[in-house]
Write a protein that binds this DNA or RNA. Structure first.
Length: 649
DNA sequence: CGCCTTTGACCCGCGC
DNA sequence: GCGCGGGTCAAAGGCG
């Protein structure tokens, strides 16, 4: 299994490297153009090269970061000779001296000659001469070339010829790179499939293993997983000395980011074109930016088909709009853009709970079937922040405040807001990731989540009783974090018949902003936004067998562990970290996600770092941030036992 | 004066 | 096509 991970990682690195090289060549060509040589170059050839490069560079979503990585080659991956040549040639072009006829002639005479004097050096070594300036003007402007002498004409012709040759060579090598990328993509997909199969087998095997072996299983997963496992995170928080002494330091949280999109260059596409465009332009730090796409964006590791679309960079092509497009693009590569919503139920007498963010009310409506009005708020912490939330009291119990968050913050969040944002983003991530593209995947998702006991038996012993309610009904998939019920109530709560439930470490936990904010590195939430996302099928089509038994199976352990950790003052911190970590940890048993653990999970990391879905901490600036009075108090013995239902409507 | 809330109007999607 | 409901806009007014 670890080899599969390794190969996947290597493929990703190689792909990124190649794409980066390709893009760098395109950039250098653009430099040439800016230097006034455009008129020498066949526009057709030029654009062809650029388009090829651009498309390659964006193949796996590396548009933004590709250039940042071009300077560093991966030593672990052999550098193809053609790429080396390409790099050397493009470098040569970049440093071509336009200030001297001799240099130009030299260029023609020896294309492989080492870099010449820099223009500045030339100027320093040779006092400014009128001729130099004229030549420069002639060469660079390309306008007065017709009036230049025959010598200049010949020079220009030779230069043009050499450039054409170079461009042709670049073009050919681009084609080779393209082919390489295609092959790599195929291999990557195959490896993903193998990984999926292997994980499925592993999950099945885990079913047969006694619970006592779960520790070993966790270790194994940890070993395979570049990130911390949930259990590790708990230990990490509860017993920092142990965690740190074992080599895990707070810096490890940053290590999460090392697998994040910023490094793997996973392309994240936003539903909202302007946001996506803005991000491309500003190249926002992934650590703070990526997440925003959590609920709105799609991450597709299998971006092969899209990669073949040279119009990828075209905003108008960000989203597949026609059915034709969707048919052409494999399901896994389609871009579903649906906003996920995270609804938090909490008991609160206040009209609105403070969650660390600033909100402005922009509307209020009377919702049908509820005498209480629904208020609409917009985040005002930053201009243009798309995050919105709805606040409404439950009709049945007006003491319960339902806060629904939508969108992702486009700005840094204060620690208090980051905490809940991480949780909600993780919830959104799970929501979307749980809604896989295919029915089989969904069924597998539910079935194995429930039957394999992955969460309850091994990775999530402390969270077995925690569930969230997921409603994927139109118009937006929504996950509800119910913080209103007592832990035991929730634990024994019978899920509605129309819901499919499985243990999920989402909710019912107080958010310790000190922990999460203090870490400063919001633990990534793996998010896979399946292309062509659609709301999960109605529960009727979802197999839930074994779920109930799973909860029962883990209940004893859960209660024991809950009682033990409830008294731990760091309990809430552990929960918070575990929640995020679990969300960020790979879910080998999950059908669709597992194939993207390396990618999407990392993306999610950054997404979480961004505080995506909006913060939910609405409690007063007291200790229980985001936790309604009496429901979720840090250290509350109820919390560990709290239960949430993750259901699919 | 600026920010915020209120509130009616408007838009849009969906179902009949 | 029409009505309904959800969501948003924007003018008006309040408040510090």
């Amino acid at each position: 299994m670890r080899y599969i991970y390794f190969y996947l990682f290597c493929w990703l690195k190689l792909k990124r490297w190649v794409a980066g090289r390709c893009k760098s060549s395109a950039v250098r060509i653009a430099v040439m153009e800016k230097q006034g040589r455009r008129h020498h170059i066949s526009s057709k050839l030029f654009h062809h090269s650029v388009s090829d490069c651009s498309f390659n560079a964006s193949d796996d979503g590396q548009l933004v970061d590709a250039t940042n990585n071009t300077s560093s080659s991966n030593p672990s991956i052999p550098i193809p000779i053609p790429i080396k040549q390409l790099f050397r040639q493009t470098k040569e072009i970049k440093e071509m001296d336009f200030f001297s006829d001799n240099k130009i002639m030299n260029d023609d005479a020896d294309d492989d000659e080492e870099p010449r004097l820099q223009p500045q050096q030339d100027c320093n070594n040779n006092p400014p001469a009128v001729n130099t300036g004229l030549n420069l003007l002639t060469l660079n402007s390309g306008i007065s070339s017709t009036s230049a002498g025959d010598i200049h004409q010949n020079s220009n012709n030779k230069l043009m010829t050499s450039l054409q040759v170079e461009l042709e060579r670049l073009h050919e090598e681009n084609g080779e790179l393209k082919t390489m990328l295609d092959q790599m993509t195929k291999s990557y997909s195959q490896l993903q499939a193998q990984l999926l199969i292997a994980m499925q087998k592993q999950a099945q095997n885990r079913l047969r293993e006694p619970i006592k072996c779960e520790a070993n299983g966790m270790l194994a997963r940890q070993f395979m997983d570049p990130r911390l496992s949930a259990a590790a995170a708990i230990d990490h928080v509860r017993n920092p000395s142990v965690a740190y002494s074992s080599g895990k330091t707070p810096a490890d949280h940053e290590a999460f980011s090392s697998f994040s999109p910023s490094n793997l260059n996973i392309e994240v596409m936003s539903t909202e074109r302007d946001q996506y465009k803005r991000r491309l332009q500003t190249n926002i730090n992934c650590a703070e930016d990526a997440l925003d796409r959590s609920s709105q964006c799609l991450v597709s590791p299998n971006y092969t088909s899209k990669s073949s679309n040279p119009n990828l960079l075209d905003d108008d092509n960000d989203e597949p709009k026609s059915s034709t497009d969707q048919e052409q693009v494999p399901v896994a590569d389609q871009v579903p853009f649906r906003k996920a919503r995270v609804s938090v139920r909490a008991r609160s007498e206040a009209p609105m709970i403070s969650d660390g963010c600033q909100w402005r009310k922009y509307g209020q409506k009377m919702a049908k079937g509820n005498p209480c009005p629904r208020a609409y708020y917009r985040c005002t912490m930053a201009i243009g922040c798309p995050v919105r939330k709805q606040v409404q009291r439950l009709a049945e119990d007006k003491t319960i405040l339902i806060t629904t968050y939508e969108g992702n913050h486009s700005h840094p969040l204060p620690p208090a807001a980051t905490a809940m944002a991480n949780t909600t983003s993780a919830a959104a991530a799970m929501l979307l990731s749980g809604s896989t593209t295919s029915k089989e995947a969904l069924q597998y998702h539910h079935h194995h989540l429930a039957n394999s006991g992955f969460f309850s038996n091994s990775q999530l012993p402390f969270f077995a009783s925690s569930m969230a309610t997921l409603s994927a009904s139109a118009p937006f998939p929504t996950i509800t974090l119910d913080l209103t019920q007592s832990p035991m109530q929730q634990f024994h709560r019978i899920p509605p018949p129309s819901s499919s439930t499985f243990p999920l470490p989402l909710h019912g936990y107080p958010i310790n902003h000190q922990l999460m904010g203090g870490l400063g590195h919001p633990i990534p939430a793996p998010m896979y936004f399946p292309p062509n996302y659609k709301a999960p099928p109605s529960p009727a089509g979802v197999s839930l067998g074994g779920q109930r038994s799973t909860s029962t199976h883990a209940s004893g352990m859960v209660e024991t562990v809950s009682a033990a950790i409830a008294s731990d003052p760091n309990f809430t911190a552990a929960l918070a970290a575990a929640i995020s970590t679990i969300m960020g940890a790979p879910r080998p048993h999950q059908g669709h996600q597992e194939s993207i653990n390396i990618n999407d999970g990392d993306i999610a990391n950054n997404n979480a770092a961004r505080g995506v879905v909006a913060s939910t901490n609405n409690s007063p600036p007291s200790a229980n941030i985001g936790v309604p009075p009496g429901s979720l108090q840090p250290g509350s013995p109820q919390l560990p036992q709290s239960c949430t239902t993750f259901s699919t409507n």
